[in-house]
Computed example of a mutant assay.
Amino acid sequence: MRVLPVLGLLLVLATPALAEDEPDVDCANAMAQPDLNDCAYREYEAADAELNAVYRQAMTAAQKVDKELEGADIGAVEALKTTQRAWIGYRDGQCELAGFQARGGQAEPMLVSGCLAQLTQKRTAELNEFLEAQGN
């Protein structure tokens, strides 16, 4: 499930794009705020890609659970969709709030991206726990 909410769109627009001829930023040694912002956003992008892959696996596992159940017991797919939608709303609100530590400043995108990466990594771990419980 790939959702690009308004916060994500604003973050993309606020993150400066690297020109093709500019050298790649060494995130392990980044010191300038624009580089730190870029590196934090890259970390979020990587976490989001991993989350999307694990979510697809979790959806397959939920579909399998529903196939094994009957009648009123079916609902793993809908439960997964519901929790993911609720989590996205929580993540976006929480990370917008995190940005207020430097509201309007150069570090705001870094704080938002860092929050997005951290919460996305935690959600991926939760989905992996679901997969493990299903024997995957």
Rank of each mutant, 00 (worst) to 15 (best):
V3C: 10
V3R: 10
L4T: 15
V6Y: 15
V6D: 13
G8H: 05
L9N: 11
V12C: 15
V12T: 14
L13K: 14
P16T: 10
L18V: 13
E20Y: 07
E20Q: 06
E22G: 06
E22S: 11
D24H: 15
C27G: 03
C27R: 01
A28Y: 09
A28N: 12
A30D: 07
A30S: 02
M31D: 15
A32G: 07
Q33Y: 05
Q33M: 07
D35V: 09
L36D: 08
N37M: 14
D38F: 12
A40L: 05
A40M: 05
A40T: 03
R42S: 04
E45V: 04
E45W: 02
A47R: 00
D48M: 00
A49D: 10
Q57V: 01
Q57T: 08
A58T: 08
A58H: 03
T60V: 12
Q63W: 08
Q63L: 14
D66V: 01
K67V: 02
L69N: 03
L69P: 07
E70L: 13
D73N: 06
G75W: 07
G75L: 01
A76M: 04
E78R: 13
A79T: 11
L80P: 03
K81A: 13
K81R: 15
A86E: 12
A86W: 00
W87R: 05
Y90F: 09
R91G: 03
D92M: 01
G93A: 00
C95T: 03
C95W: 03
C95F: 03
E96G: 13
E96V: 12
L97N: 12
L97T: 13
A98S: 01
G99D: 00
A102Y: 07
R103Y: 12
G104A: 07
G104P: 02
G105Y: 13
G105R: 11
Q106F: 12
A107Q: 04
P109C: 06
V112P: 02
G114I: 00
L116E: 09
Q118D: 08
K122V: 10
T124H: 09
E129F: 13
E129R: 11
E129G: 13
F130A: 10
L131Y: 07
G135M: 00
N136H: 15
